[in-house]
Design a protein around this nucleic acid. Structure first.
Length: 417
RNA sequence: GCGGGUGUAGCUCAGUUGGUUAGAGCGCGGGUUUGUGGUACCUGAGGUCGCCGGUUCGAAGCCGGUCACUCGCCCCA
């Protein structure tokens, strides 16, 4: 392979087969979310970097080391979007929709993160997501999780996926808990992993999902987030769980589930599979009531999630088939141009048509067979003279000389069965 | 960002202890039976053996570096 002719690391071409699966995932998402009355929106692929920096938190990996930040010709600092929520909320604020809540949005498109590529982890990847903005009631959390569940269900993969859920509580609860956690962990400072030690001062909650075995041992007796929820937060979380029970959606409360991004509060959840190696999270989200304010807007409640399109596509079955209903061929090249008006007529009748221009008759039939054509229309000396076509049914191997209009009827009738 | 594995034609792989013009199957192109296909036959194209450098009379095979993919960590979707 020519070394210079390649895509950049972690960025892949999508050939028909893979693209087909991606579309299948996105279609299912749009389909289900539109039934929940979520409206599709599209927002820019890049924004002023502040749009992401503020809400995601300056200590988050996404902002510190995984960003694609660059300056354009007018010296504005821009960032390729690493996720969708911040942009959606920004768009919501810009459009003045605070005056018209609730708003329910769905979106999909490429996101960018400078990470080390792996299976199911790319530098340019697609997310499909939904956001329910303007409802602080816990019902919205349930609605959104239910939507995610139905989405995965439509993709026929829900039985390979489990749901984990947790609550971080409101700002008060979060603060109290963080204090307690720091107090506890301070006694183990000498044993904590390097990463965790760093987080102790920057973002203590993130220590909870450390996979370091020593950290995990220390964490066994650490204070539990759920014990530090104040009445309001606790009741809220119970409501969410109850709602899931009523929907018969199975879940597991995971006290170590902490979303990595600063803007989350209250409900956090993840749909996880063990089929994708270490990239098991397939759909994740939570509540982000503080986000709007971080962006400089008024306080607006919100919940949502995002799903990894290529991760889901890896789990989805189905090959891409695009075989023609009818293949057109001429006995010799001189008749090739006579095939074009026939093609136009046939595609206007709604058929999928391909013309085979080269090769001898035998080769042409081989090709027609290979691409799985249902019918062949053959034009030769005799047909042209008699102003008919030869129509061959490739499934049966039968053929007849027939007027084109009559032939169309035959084809239609056959394909309907 | 850290650690392990892999890298030969479009695909799946072979390539003996380093030795002349690097192979197979499948796939692809053209053709054979003078208007017909899942079979057959002939024939062709396609590889600077990921890339760069080193050792050697000589390297696809050894050494170093680099890139990409992959697995685990990290992070997340």
């Amino acid at each position: 392979m020519m070394e210079k002719l390649r895509t950049v690391r972690g960025v892949h071409d999508l050939l028909p087969d893979a693209l087909h699966k991606h579309k299948k995932v996105i279609k299912a998402g749009l389909n289900v979310s539109s039934k929940y009355c979520y409206s599709e929106i599209e927002i820019p692929i890049f924004e002023f970097s502040e749009v992401f920096k503020k809400p995601l938190g300056n200590s988050s990996d996404i902002v510190t080391k995984e960003n694609y930040i660059f300056k354009d010709r007018s010296d504005d600092e821009l960032m390729l979007r690493p996720e969708g929520t911040s942009g959606v909320v920004r768009a919501f604020l810009n459009a003045g929709l605070v005056q018209d809540i609730p708003q329910r949005f769905s979106y999909f498109g490429p996101m960018f993160r400078y990470e080390r590529p792996q299976k199911g982890r790319l530098r340019q990847f697609k997310q499909f997501g939904v956001e329910c903005i303007g409802i602080s009631n816990s019902m919205a959390d349930i609605e959104v999780i239910s939507l995610g569940y139905e989405f995965l269900n439509k993709l026929n993969i829900i039985d390979k996926i489990s749901l984990k859920i947790n609550s971080l509580g409101d700002a008060d609860s979060r603060l109290n808990y963080t204090k307690a956690l720091i107090d506890y962990l301070n006694d183990y400072k000498s044993q904590l992993s390097k990463d965790s030690l760093k987080r102790l001062s920057e973002n203590p909650l993130r220590i909870l999902d450390s996979k370091n075995s020593v950290d995990q041992k220390i964490l066994i007796n650490a204070p539990n987030v759920l014990d530090y929820l104040n009445e309001r937060s606790k009741e809220r979380f119970e409501n969410v769980c109850e709602g899931l029970d009523i929907l018969k959606i199975k879940y597991e409360i995971d006290k170590s589930l902490v979303r990595g991004l600063d803007y989350y509060c209250h409900t956090a959840f993840e749909f996880i599979t063990d089929e994708l190696g270490s990239q098991g999270t397939v759909l994740a989200g939570g509540r982000y009531d503080g986000l709007s304010k971080m962006l400089g807007g008024v306080e607006v409640a919100g919940v949502g999630w995002a799903a990894g399109v290529e991760r889901l596509a890896l789990m989805v079955q189905g090959e891409y088939i695009n075989s023609p209903d009818i293949v057109l061929m001429a006995q010799t090249e001189v008749y090739n141009h006579l095939l074009l008006p026939i093609m136009n007529k046939l595609i206007n009748e709604g058929f999928r048509v391909e013309i085979i221009y080269t090769g001898n008759i035998s080769k042409k039939f081989k090709r027609a067979n290979k691409i799985n054509a249902s019918f062949v229309v053959l034009l030769g000396e005799e047909e042209v003279a008699k102003k008919v076509i030869k129509l061959r049914n490739m499934m049966l191997g039968s053929e007849q000389l027939i007027d084109l209009n009559q032939g169309i009827k035959v084809i239609r009738k056959t394909l309907q069965n």
